[in-house]
Design a protein around this nucleic acid. Sequence first.
DNA 1: CTATTATGAATGAACG
DNA 2: CGTTCATTCATAATAG
Lengths: 159, 159
Amino acid sequence: MDEYSTGFCIRAGRSGGGGTGTKCGRWNPTTEQVKVLTELFRSGLRTPSTDQIQKISAELSFYGKIESKNVFYWFQNHKARERQKRRRVLVDEPTHHINHHTTKQINEISEAERVIETLQLFPLNSRLFADEFKENTAFTYNVGMEMDQPTLDLRLSFV
Amino acid sequence: MDEYSTGFCIRAGRSGGGGTGTKCGRWNPTTEQVKVLTELFRSGLRTPSTDQIQKISAELSFYGKIESKNVFYWFQNHKARERQKRRRVLVDEPTHHINHHTTKQINEISEAERVIETLQLFPLNSRLFADEFKENTAFTYNVGMEMDQPTLDLRLSFV
DNA sequence: CTATTATGAATGAACG
DNA sequence: CGTTCATTCATAATAG
């Protein structure tokens, strides 16, 4: 239809040789990776700094191939889509209906959002994650604590 | 359940022809424009001066609607992302023995940057690009400077 | 297989 | 300049 399809994405293509399912297409996060990322997001982390991104990436690499940019995009997209949805709800909801039950967890997020502002560094530990690999052991989220990492400066430009 | 219909504001229908009226939305560069810009960037141009921007914009306007600020932003973004990308890869790719290769490339670029600093003007040959796509051939105008400037061919071995 | 959805990736624009 | 936001493109995943 449209001709403006710049289509120049990473065309993995079958680079002669083994096509061992090496789908160099796009990153396909594992369940565990998504789980961790989602947890971080729910904890309030919205825009991790470069340092954070790299640490997160490093930790998540335990579960499978991953790059920093994947983490970067993941948060970028999640935040954007969160806003997108919220926005749609607002638009979809004229000034008529006073309250709706569609605004349920949105409030939660707003709440958590504030909490993370002072999050120093998540205690990501490969061993830790490995242990809870399959077990649904509640995450040991020592948000305010540091394991053995020195108080890393991790301030978001909050106000 | 998602039926995003944020479809207001035409989707840049500036397909060559009457690009008139197409004013909403953001600039959607044509492949030709991107190609030229990329070429310039690869030639070492990183922060074009106002004059350069003006001329580049003028040149690219042949391929479609474009403003100076688009060119300005394009270079800003491209440079920033190139750097960002390099930085990530640097920290993100420990599996590879990164000799001084990376550094070498950087130096090369710095060098090229210096070179382009004196790049008088457009080393582009419009006809070349046009020829590659359609038949917009007949199209020999000079970027606003003297027409004594012979059509330089800055073609790189790339593409 | 084709159509739809979910989401990774890209990038124009702009902010601090 | 580095970072952030918004829209859009492309494609893996999944429904039909």
